[in-house]
C-alpha cells in the first residue's frame, strides 16, 4: 500500500508551509495583517502536521520504498517590497494548493482503506487549507493593482 508515501508527502508539505508562513511573517512584519495572519496560519499547519503524524507512522510500517521524485521544492526564501510581498504570497498560495489537492488524494485513499479516523482528520483539515487559499487570494487581489500598476 502506497498511502504512507502520500501521507508523508502531505505531512512534509504542511511542515514546509508552516515554515514558509513564518518566514513570510518575519520578512513582512511591517504589514501587520500579514505578520499576524501568517503566524496564525503557521500554527494551523503545525496542527495539521501533528494530526497526520500517527497515520504516517501507522501506514509506514508495511510500506514499500519511497518512489522517486515524490517531493518538490516550492519555496526558496522571501523577498522585499510591494511586489516582493505579492510574489511571497503567491508562493504560499502554490504551497497551500499542493496541500489542498493532497488532502483530496489522501481523503480518497482513506475511503479505499476504510479508515474512518483518517477521513475525519482529512475532513477537519481540508476546509482550513481551503480557507488559507481563499485568504491568500483575497489579500493578493487587494494588493495587486497598487503593487503592479501604481507603485513606482
Amino acid at each position: 500500500m502506497h498511502l504512507a508515501h502520500y501521507l508523508g508527502l502531505l505531512h512534509r508539505a504542511q511542515v514546509n508551509l508552516a515554515d514558509a508562513f513564518r518566514q513570510v511573517a518575519d520578512a513582512h512584519a511591517e504589514e501587520p495583517d500579514i505578520e499576524h495572519l501568517c503566524q496564525q496560519q503557521a500554527k494551523r499547519c503545525d496542527a495539521h502536521a501533528e494530526q497526520l503524524h500517527p497515520f504516517v507512522a501507522r501506514y509506514s510500517e508495511d510500506a514499500p520504498d519511497e518512489p522517486d521524485r515524490l517531493h518538490s521544492q516550492l519555496f526558496t526564501g522571501t523577498r522585499t517590497g510591494g511586489i516582493g510581498l505579492l510574489r511571497d504570497l503567491q508562493d504560499l498560495y502554490l504551497m497551500a494548493a499542493e496541500c489542498d489537492i493532497t488532502w483530496t488524494v489522501v481523503g480518497q485513499a482513506a475511503y479505499g482503506a476504510r479508515d474512518k479516523e483518517l477521513l475525519a482528520v482529512v475532513r477537519r483539515c481540508e476546509g482550513e487549507t481551503a480557507i488559507q487559499l481563499k485568504w491568500l487570494r483575497t489579500r493578493m487581489k487587494a494588493a495587486a493593482p497598487q503593487a503592479l500598476v501604481v507603485a513606482d
Partner: peptide
C-alpha cells in the same frame, strides 16, 4: 468572509 482570516467568499 471567514471571520478568522477575512478570506472572502
Amino acid at each position: 468572509h471567514d471571520l478568522a482570516t477575512g478570506a472572502e467568499f
